[in-house]
Amino acid sequence: MTESSGPGPSEPTRPSEPARPAEPRGGGLASAVADVRLWFAPERLRDEGGTPDYRFSLANERTFLAWLRTAMALVGGGFAVDQFLPETARPLRLALALILLAGGALCALRAISHWVRCERAMRRGEDLPMSRFPVVLGLAVGVVALLMVIVAAFGWRG
């Protein structure tokens, strides 16, 4: 965007849009593996940069816990679908339950991945990581909720 045929050389670089530090696009998997290693190595996380203000770390911890609660709610919802919709056809009921359980597990894994990446970014003084996950989760929960309303309204019996 900044490299395109812009208005001219006199245009100063806009401070509001700093050139983002090159994200390891190609090594997505490699960086993911490195992140997972950080989960199990507190001393390696401590090696990165300096210790941030304890309030920032606590705020990050609360965000992690909020995501974990979301994960637990999805897991609980999965069980609830199986237990409290007994008149729904078994394959449909199982599919909904498994989708919610898998979503919960994904959410829990994402919680720690995001926590580690935020903690590291704060230690290094970098920007906090951006993520599409909240949008994807929101849309997925919306679709599942709509499906459940339909199932509850029309009661697809087995």
Binding site: W39, F40, S57, L68, A71, V75, G78, A105, V116
Partner: peptide, 23 residues
Amino acid sequence: PALSPRAAVAAVACTLALAVLGA
């Protein structure tokens, strides 16, 4: 002090365990 990564992993592991055991 900041939450240790081990404690965070353990908390996530409990959630995953519930999901897998129930599934």
